[in-house]
Simulated assay, not measured.
Amino acid sequence: MLAHPTLDQLSRLGLHGMAKAFSDAEASPEAASLSHAEWLAILLDREIALRVDKRLGARLRHARLRQQATPEDVDYRAARGLDRTLFQSLLTGAWIKAHEGVLICGPTGVGKSFLACALAHKACRDNHSVVYQRAPKFFTDLALARGDGRYARLMRSLGRADVLVLDDWGLAPLDAGARHDLLELLEERYGRRSIIITSQLPVDKWHDVIGDPTYADAVLDRVAHNAHRINLTGDSLRRSRTQLPAA
Rank of each mutant, 00 (worst) to 15 (best):
A3I: 10
D175V: 00
R84P: 04
M155W: 09
H180D: 12
A79R: 11
G109P: 11
T233K: 12
N231M: 09
A94P: 05
F22T: 07
G170D: 06
R193E: 01
A25H: 02
L103Y: 11
I230T: 00
S236L: 06
S35M: 08
I195Y: 01
P202G: 05
K20C: 05
A135L: 11
H180Q: 14
A218R: 02
R160I: 09
L50K: 13
G106D: 03
P29G: 09
D45E: 15
S33Y: 10
F114T: 04
D162F: 00
Q243K: 13
D83M: 03
Y151E: 07
H99M: 02
I96K: 01
A152Y: 05
T92I: 06
R192N: 10
F22E: 08
A31P: 06
F87H: 07
S23N: 13
H16A: 06
D148H: 14
E30Y: 12
L183A: 07
A118G: 12
Q243W: 00
L154S: 09
W169Q: 06
D221V: 03
I104V: 10
V52K: 15
L183Q: 06
G147I: 00
P29F: 12
P29C: 09
A49G: 10
D53E: 15
D167E: 12
I195L: 15
V163G: 04
L115N: 03
L186F: 13
M18G: 14
V110N: 01
D235R: 15
V163D: 00
W39F: 14
I210F: 05
L182G: 01
A31R: 15
G14V: 06
L103M: 10
E184M: 14
V203D: 01
Y132R: 11
A58N: 14
E184G: 12
T242P: 03
R150P: 08
A49P: 08
R192M: 11
D168C: 13
